[in-house]
Design a protein around this nucleic acid. Structure first.
Length: 179
DNA sequence: AAAGGGCTCAACCGCAAGGAC
DNA sequence: GGTCCTTGCGGTTGAGCCCTT
């Protein structure tokens, strides 16, 4: 049988949102707040599925969105966060007030990724890319451990700092550990 | 001015997580 | 504990814009 569709597709609009749809969604959320996305379209008189409404609100209509170009600081922070978190766009977005995961994901794929490649840095590993010679003769001395060697080496204590510590972004100014 | 190729970004899709029953 | 339902996330797509020829 498979999954039931998230909405009655035959009766929903798809594609770009109209001004009227935006207005309806904004008016409804202002009056009732963000709530049950599944029932929202019907209640708001929209021929959209709940997912689509949620996405439109979060990525485009929310009043606290910043929009516009990314600053150099935001740029650097995204790179830093991506090196720590990987493609966890929602977590990265959580650290950038007024930015959405979709926006950051797009910005990464269109701008930052290319910038890193131009600098010879692999965007997925954040390490210098291998040369052609290295590509041809891969290092066979592979590291086969599946997880980082935690607590095995008493000389190098495990990394248990919180993300703010690792980023050096604690608001208290001194780069203090919060452990 | 027109064509076409590249780029951007809003929106969609499928899946997984988590809560309710 | 199992199933269903809803939400949230990440990857991908495609329409429209921009730039180059």
């Amino acid at each position: 049988m498979g999954r039931s569709p998230c909405c009655e597709k035959a009766h929903t609009n798809k594609g770009a949102w109209t001004k009227e749809e935006d207005d309806r969604l904004i008016a409804y959320i202002k009056a009732n707040g963000e709530g049950c996305w599944r029932s929202l379209p019907k209640a708001a008189g929209l021929l959209r599925c709940g997912k689509s409404c949620r996405l439109r609100w979060i990525n485009y209509l929310r009043p606290d969105l910043k929009r516009g170009n990314f600053s150099q600081e935001e740029d650097d922070l995204i790179i830093k966060l991506h090196s720590l978190l990987g493609n966890k766009w929602s977590l990265i977005a959580g650290r950038l007030p007024g930015r959405t995961d979709n926006e950051i994901k797009n910005y990464w794929n269109t701008h930052i990724r290319r910038k890193l490649l131009q600098r010879g840095i692999d965007p997925s590993t954040h390490r210098p890319m291998r040369t052609r010679a290295e590509e041809k003769c891969p290092d066979l001395n592979l590291e086969l451990r599946m997880s980082p060697p935690r607590h095995l080496d008493a000389r190098s204590p495990p990394q248990e700092k919180c993300l703010d510590c690792r980023l050096g972004s604690h608001g208290d100014g001194g780069g203090k550990d919060c452990r």
